[in-house]
């Protein structure tokens, strides 16, 4: 059983928990306390308002815990606001967790009238097209040398992976397609297996 946490300070938490609960071998957990974060094998930073979640991470002193878990190798996946939290650089403002070698632009597409949905196939994740929902979404402006680009849409980078870190501008949790969540669950399973080997 892999314990996968969803940071539940603010935002679209239930949606992630609901999709995770449909995948075999996963115990989904809403986490907002240090002790809970220490228990999980993988952590999802959900969509929401990145300024709000960032402030709550500071106020409740959770940043160091998440960063140390990430450095210990547990997989982290940021969707939308979560991508902004992971980035080392944010256009025009201070970074939050400072983990992933990407530069992001908040509200990259504009206001709510510019939110959109698209069906796209991402070869590394799934053979078929996946519905992707962009809500006041950020995009990636620059990536570091070790960051892999999973998806570019209309010339903008919207999906990236860097070792144990995964970030998407869009929200797979707002649709019923499990492909992206399964991809992350596999990442968690592989990493806990290799951690187990190291421990032995």
């Amino acid at each position: 059983m892999s314990k996968i946490g969803v940071l539940s300070l603010q935002g679209g938490v239930e949606e992630h928990l609901e999709l995770l609960s449909q995948i075999e071998g996963v115990e989904p957990l809403a986490v907002k306390k240090k002790d809970d974060i220490l228990k999980v094998d993988g952590l999802i930073l959900p969509g929401g308002e990145s300024t709000t979640i960032g402030k709550l991470l500071d106020i409740f002193d959770l940043k160091d815990t998440i960063v140390s878990r990430a450095n210990a190798g547990i997989p982290l996946w940021g969707t939308c606001a979560g991508m902004i939290l992971l980035a080392k650089e944010i256009d025009g403002e201070k970074s939050h967790l400072n983990l992933m070698d990407i530069k992001v632009r908040r509200n990259g597409y504009g206001n709510q009238l510019d939110s959109f949905k698209r069906e796209v196939s991402i070869p590394k994740v799934s053979n078929k097209a996946i519905p992707l929902v962009f809500i006041r979404a950020p995009f990636v402006e620059e990536v570091g040398p070790s960051t892999e680009i999973l998806l570019k849409l209309d010339g903008k980078i919207v999906g990236v992976e860097e070792e144990n870190l995964l970030a998407t501008s869009f929200h797979p949790e707002l649709e019923n397609d499990l492909s992206f969540h399964k991809y992350f669950v596999n990442k968690v399973k592989k990493s806990s297996y290799s951690n187990l080997k190291i421990a032995k």
Partner: peptide
Amino acid sequence: DSRYDLNKNLAQMLKGGV
């Protein structure tokens, strides 16, 4: 319909907030 879904989605992202 898809615009309506996107609008419901934005509200979902505000959950747990003030």
